[in-house]
Design a protein around this nucleic acid. Structure first.
Lengths: 206, 206
DNA sequence: ACAGTTAAGCACTGATCGGTACAGAACAAA
DNA sequence: TTTGTTCTGTACCGATCAGTGCTTAACTGT
């Protein structure tokens, strides 16, 4: 039997869902963001989502799957700066967009402090290795994107030939991770913007 | 009744302890270091310490007290660089000792990767607020010590009058926190030393 | 020998963890 | 109305959490 409808939204048969999946996912994302993967219990999550455990399992699979979806939403929304920064026209602008974007996202007054992927990564019980590996992949991808971008910048003369694209990328990842830690510890937005500026002060000239 | 013996070691009456408190504390510290405060269960801890739950409670109080003791041991031992760095003769040497010390401690092949106080801080269930506050105090103390040191350096002409001691201190805390995140994610020691050098490259001249 | 004191070890507590069985409710197709 | 399908809510599962009661063991002082 050919499944010609694969990928299309099937006509609604059965009882219709009574909650908004997107809205529920948004709220779950915030709980994970505030409490980390392990710190967020299903009771916390479903209470914030406004649905029962059963509905959550039916809609998202399990806690790990829910976290995956929440993480996707995080990088598509609040943390989109990480993927957009490499599109800036110059290497220095890429770096500035990356760091200042990190500050804005981790210190937004309307959102939890800190970074979902950093919070999640450091709550490290060996049991949740799958989640840790997922987060490690996300971070490595971001680092690789920056490195590729700086490699291109060097090829184009936007960075000096002596510069090290991998080191520059790792440096930005390190500072942005530190910004997330500081933000989670309560550091202020203005202060962290100044820290970001300080980190960018010795950026290689074009 | 005057307790003239207060503070002195009472003669050993009763059954003698069969384990070395220091050794047990060292092993507990490593478990907290690897797994964070919440991630380290009493089963994990006591198994590593080689004692029963009962003995742990009798000797240390409870899990939170044990963590406090482990944290003290951490900053007296593996993370002593944080308190020793301000003793360096120049501001730049202070900064270098702080960052490279962070790299050495968080990437030691003989010890867990990352930083105990960062790992513990970001596993944030609201229930353990006492532990989070404790770790926030520790971090703020370290930042204040650096700031005082750089203030003195500026007064002594070791830093230019235009430099901002608070910003320099916060910058170092941010980078060292980022180093801890990178180390926990598996970044290599040599690579992080290069990142530390990059962060120190634009340090204000004397 | 005996009382007093402290530690060790087993078995247990109530609470909470992630996850689920089951029954009823709400829809589409027949 | 009946049947099939999907969602909702309750009430529960075994496992694990931090923490303890109680007995027994090992020591000191008398």
């Amino acid at each position: 039997m050919l499944d010609v409808m694969a990928g299309t939204r099937r006509a609604t048969i059965g009882r219709p869902r009574e909650f908004d999946v997107d809205e529920a996912l948004e709220r779950a994302m915030r709980v994970f963001w505030e409490q980390g993967y392990e710190g967020a219990s299903l009771t916390d999550l479903t209470a914030a989502m406004g649905i029962t455990r059963t509905s959550m399992y039916a809609a998202f699979g399990n806690k790990e799957d829910l976290f995956r979806r929440a993480l996707e939403r995080y990088f598509a929304g609040p943390a989109a700066y990480a993927e957009r920064a490499p599109e800036e026209p110059t290497a220095k602008q890429v770096a500035a967009a990356f760091l200042h974007g990190a500050v804005d996202t981790t210190t937004s007054p309307e959102q939890p402090s800190g970074c979902l992927s950093v919070q999640g990564a450091l709550a490290a019980a060996p049991a949740d290795r799958a989640v840790q590996d997922l987060l490690a992949d996300v971070r490595n991808d971001a680092c690789a994107r920056l490195e590729d971008r700086f490699q291109r910048a060097r090829d184009e003369g936007d960075l000096p030939p002596t510069s090290d694209p991998g080191l520059l990328a790792r440096f930005l990842m390190t500072v942005s991770g530190g910004i997330a830690v500081q933000a989670a510890s309560g550091a202020g937005r203005d202060e962290l913007h100044r820290v970001a500026d300080a980190a960018l002060q010795n950026w290689p000239p074009a």
